[in-house]
């Protein structure tokens, strides 16, 4: 098995901030907008270094999405920053009409996604955002797994022409992907090769999937692990190649089981190569207050839950 090492836990939102800071110095067309959450989104460095290219719009996310769409008319590459809840559900129609349907080159960057936002509770813990965004034609949906990958993804989406939803989070999590490696939109990363079960995870669940694979290996089960950082367009080839070998799959994500990565994977396998699938995801409920660890444990989003799902899906083969 490949060995992955946490080079020092960091929050993925800081990876976004670092990527945005780098873009500020390398691409003069990149502009940033924020709805009164500059510190939370780690956009301070960009704001400090490029005040003319930073737009503080106040607590008015609908207006922010429209302004971002307008900035593209004039050749700018706008990055909007606010929490995932306010980046999607609150402004769905603005994104749908002014950004997705109009096919504007806006990068919607969303922090504090999922349960790991923690103590603020369900009003802020959106678990439906991947579904909302992936249903929009033209929209690319990306949920990177750690600090390094979030930084790389931030830089990569500036070079892609079209609307993108970039989802990341608040807590410090293992940072294990190589620094400064190129990010390929739509290309899943095979982190472990295995023969008994395929574990496909996105975002914070990727590290948990790696831990689950280690645990399964100790029990004599060979798990393949794919980091599916891009939910749309989905890397169908990577999924099908793997399940033809393993014959079953576990999907893992910090999202409602409806509308998420698992549902997209299910569509791929049912139309191409039917096989058993288990879903590690939130079971159609809202979140609640608690520490990130407590919440991920209570809602079954960790390595132990992935191990249990893997055993269950193997038994169904």
């Amino acid at each position: 098995m490949k060995k992955y090492t946490d080079s020092g836990s960091k929050d993925t939102r800081s990876g976004f901030g670092a990527g945005l800071e780098e873009l500020g110095n390398t691409n003069e067309n990149v502009v940033a907008l924020c709805a009164d959450l500059t510190g939370s989104l780690k956009m301070n460095a960009f704001e400090d270094q490029h005040p003319d290219r930073f737009f503080q719009v106040g607590i008015a996310e609908a207006n922010m999405m429209g302004i971002a769409a307008g900035l593209t008319i004039g050749g700018k590459i706008p990055f909007t920053g606010t929490f995932a809840n306010f980046s999607t559900g609150r402004v769905y129609d603005q994104i749908r009409q002014s950004i997705a349907y109009s096919n504007k080159n806006v990068k919607i960057c969303a922090s504090h996604a999922g349960l790991t936002l923690g103590e603020d509770g369900a009003t802020h813990q959106i678990l439906e955002d991947i579904g909302l965004m992936k249903m929009l034609p033209h929209m690319v949906v990306i949920n990177p797994c750690d600090y390094n990958q979030t930084k790389a993804a931030t830089i990569a989406i500036a070079a892609y022409e079209g609307p993108v939803y970039l989802r990341f989070g608040r807590p410090k999590v293992a940072n294990f992907t190589p620094a400064d490696s190129a990010f390929k939109i739509g290309k899943g990363d095979i982190l472990q090769e295995g023969t008994d079960v395929t574990l496909i995870a996105t975002g914070h669940l990727v590290w948990e999937a790696l831990k689950a694979a280690e645990s399964l290996n100790e029990q004599g089960i060979s798990a393949e692990v794919i980091n599916m950082h891009t939910i749309k367009p989905l890397d169908e080839k990577a999924i099908l190649t793997s399940i033809k070998k393993t014959g079953c799959v576990v999907s893992a994500e910090e999202h409602n089981r409806y509308g998420g990565l698992g549902e997209s994977i299910a569509q791929v396998i049912t139309t191409n190569h039917p096989c058993p699938q288990e879903f590690v995801a939130v079971n159609d409920s809202f979140g609640e207050s608690g520490t990130p660890e407590q919440l991920m444990d209570k809602y079954g989003l960790n390595a132990a839950a992935i191990v249990a799902a893997a055993k269950k899906v193997i038994a169904r083969k």
Binding site: D52, M65, I67, G70, I73, G74, K76, Q94, S98
Partner: peptide, 17 residues
Amino acid sequence: GQGMSVAIGAAEAKKLN
């Protein structure tokens, strides 16, 4: 209700340019 926001963005881009 969306056009004024878009126009503001375009106006901001003009200022930057």
